[in-house]
Amino acid sequence: MINVALPKGRLGSSAYKLFEKLGCGPIEENTRKLKFIEESAGLSFFWVKPSDVAIYVERGAADVGVCGKDILLESGADVFELLDLGIGRCRMCVAGYEGRTYDMERPLRVATKFPNIARSYYSGKSRDIDIIKLNGSIELAPVMGLSDVIVDIVESGATLRENGLAPLEEVCRITARLVANKVSYKFKNVEIKRLTEALI
């Protein structure tokens, strides 16, 4: 039996569709069950907060998981990254007011949910920054004057536009990945390899 950690929400649902190829039945609608077993496919699924998938897999509570590249980069989790699933496509961007110039004399104030990604991006550009860690509604920060720019995930850019902001620089491209615990990968190698090949 392989334990699979799935991210709750839209990404998790489309990730689960990929597993249907392995003979897993459709998801039960309107259930609050956090764990379910697909006996015939030899898989046991559970739903966790998207940002927690990497840690479940790193610590071995899950053998494999589906996890956005953003979460992997941010957490620096020590896991195997077996496959780019090609779903949950988006971009990590620096966004702010278009055409505005910023005082290079002082650190750039950056609001973000992803402090580690922001830090490594700006240290690569040798730019001092002041990180403001927020947990949601990041777009509000420049509007309220809390920060100069934000580093956040951009899908369509609609939320940015509606708040008068625009993507300024692309940090990296994001897709969902199949990740595996390093010890599980060895002890359940045949099963995990089969799973990986079926998801390609």
Partner: peptide, 9 residues
């Protein structure tokens, strides 16, 4: 070296 149940080597 690895044994089952441990989260690392």
């Amino acid at each position: 070296g690895y044994v089952p149940g441990a989260s690392g080597a």
